[in-house]
Design a protein around this nucleic acid. Sequence first.
DNA 1: TCTGGGGTCCTTTTCCTT
DNA 2: TCTGAAGGAAAAGGACCC
Length: 437
Amino acid sequence: MPAAVFGRYACRVSTPFLLEGAALLTSGKPRRIAHLDMDAFFASVELLRHPQLEGLPVVIGGARRIAREALLAGHGERAMHSIPVAEFPRLKDYVGRGVITTATYAARQFGVGSAMGMMKAARLCPQAIVLPVDFDEIRRFSKLFKSIIAELAPQIQDRGIDEVYVDFTDVPGGQRDGGRALARLIQRAIFEKTGLTCSIGVAPNKLLAKMASEFDKPNGISIVQESDVQSLIWPLNVRKINGIGPRAGEKLAALGIRTIGELAAQERQFLIGHFGKASGAWMLDAAWGRDASPVATHSEPVSMSRETTFERDLHAVHDKAELGAIFTRLCAQVAADLQRKGYAAKTIGIKLRYDDFRTATRDLTVPAYTSDAQTIRNIAGQCLKRVPLDQRLRLLGVRASTLATAEKLSVFEQIKPIVQTGRAPPATKTIAFYSLF
DNA sequence: TCTGGGGTCCTTTTCCTT
DNA sequence: TCTGAAGGAAAAGGACCC
């Protein structure tokens, strides 16, 4: 505790000073945060299983219509490597909805890329081989590479299926060569045990580490120091900042701000005026390479949801039975997810997307937590009544939020009987316990 | 032209209470 | 009793990320 360090003066100094002093005393070494990004993860995992597809245009996506089982019918798992290329399905034969999850570099040369509609991709590169996403396999590799990193550097923050932040600061050897030595060690271990490559950026914080990891792709390592911000970061487009997407990028461009350096030159109040208090201030800090956020090794989920886009647009009246069945299934899936992960929710919501792609959401917070499928279905049903249903729908989703863990709820369950067995407990007491969570 | 699914976080609006 | 301000919580929408 800083209080002990500062001895009798501890009670007289302000909290910020204590924190600053503690940081100086404990570290003495520069903060080194790494961002690790697997190279074309989905496609790379797929190529490991189908090496004969190496160098060919391949897109991954459309899982629902291209079943792996059908693909492998008559071949079996052991023959996977030897399926003739000619037998793989082609994009030109693809019918229906969906987007490309990822594409190999050979396919990208035709202009095909992530998040592109399958039908558009089929026009650009009809001969491309199309494979379904195998999420079980992707998840297996995700766990594997994360566990390999954890053995070498345990302070890890999950950043999705194929990315992590790693705190090198206090790892033995983590400071050597600006972090390059440890990065190389991790890169080599991942390749040896999975056959996959990754790119790593090391910098004083997460924001810069994320940008650094893009400097040398694939299979690269790059180090960015605080003093490099003006020379390496400022010339880049604002869109390179993690958190500035298409909308903010467009808005900035309209204000004549294209590079990160131009963003850094703005007045804080000017940015706050255009982007709001939190976003405006954050943007300016980001442009200066400032980011104090820690590598969060643990986080609690905020919500759990299931949604599905229909094969064809459905109408609430005309396709009532079909829609009802899907709705019930989504509720059951959310309930199962909550139960499997040990959570219950107090807010249940729905999401729907109309045929013109407009989205509507409704949600409802109830007094008691639940993870029961029927209860969720009832609450979601109430939400559904509050939304216009005269137009065809393309998507329906169910969401659970305001979550509590089963442990917290069991504490509540233990408290409740005590309150209720007490002499004439007023109803307000029970309500007070509810509000604890 | 067509636009998945699972998340987090922020902003704005609305409603309720004081 | 009516009105308005202020503030918080919930709801709705949307941007962004992988």
